[in-house]
Nucleic acid binder design. Structure first.
Lengths: 134, 134
DNA sequence: GATAAGTTAAAGAAAAGTGTTTAAATTGTC
DNA sequence: GACAATTTAAACACTTTTCTTTAACTTATC
């Protein structure tokens, strides 16, 4: 049983990067070229992108795409949009306004600044009223 | 640029599975053996597990290691340990006792038996008080 | 415009993942 | 117990990914 998608090398580079080191500095530490650090970092980011996309597929597997919420939308306006869309499908969302906001905050911790969404968010709905964000 | 981790074959099997078909039925449809359907489905699940683990790593990247909880610890003792460690760093954990236990149960479903942890758990804390386990 | 930081491309060797078959073993259900 | 459903293991061909080097190219920053 292997663990995540990222190789040891990739995690190593991401950790150093997070600490603010330049690719050249990392290259010196792990004894390789800066070009190599660049490609390792790049493939790490690609793997992260693929991991996200994989989980997105899972959500779409047992839910239907409900709507898109555009970047810039006020966090507090999101529940009304979702309730309205779900009503069209005659499905009762199993969250109230407050827990819906909490749910969004929990599952997309980096998608908002202050009260405003910083990127588009896709909303999925299962037949039993569960909501997923991506 | 490829998309997710799952191959066409793997998504195909997962979709049929979601519709309630048996492995034998799927084997007939996609013209292969049921054993093969089984391994394809299994590697799909493995890929999904790895995708989750990859994103978990991301969380640990921008958080600091708070403490280790030793195997055998009573589940109900965990929150007090975490609150105490977070206090040392002057960070207020954004979960209360109960939701912290639920959070642990959700993110490490196989790490405990009855009320006792079955393996060591690493605890990570972000600057805004979010908690992650691995 | 010079220096540092980052990116890109080509090429090769090693490692890892996929789909497949066949055959045997397990599990669940009536 | 019998039967269907599922799982496991070993083996093989094939494809993809990873890490690496070298050399050239782009972008900021001073």
């Amino acid at each position: 049983m292997k663990d995540g998608l990222l190789t040891e090398r990739q995690m190593e580079v991401l950790r150093y990067r997070r600490q603010g080191l330049t690719q050249q500095q990392i290259a010196d530490i792990i004894a390789t070229s800066k070009a190599n650090v660049c490609t390792i970092e790049k493939s790490a980011m690609e793997n992260i992108r693929r991991a996200k996309e994989t989980l997105d597929f899972l959500y779409t597997l047992d839910s239907t795409h409900l709507c898109s919420i555009k970047s810039g939308t006020d966090l507090f306006d999101v529940p009304a949009i979702i309730f309205s869309e779900a009503e069209k499908l005659n499905i009762k969302v199993k969250y109230d306004t407050i827990s819906l906001i909490n749910h969004l905050r929990d599952s997309r911790p980096k998608s908002y600044q202050a009260r405003s969404l910083s990127e588009n968010v896709e909303v999925y709905l299962t037949t039993d009223g569960d909501i997923y964000f991506s």
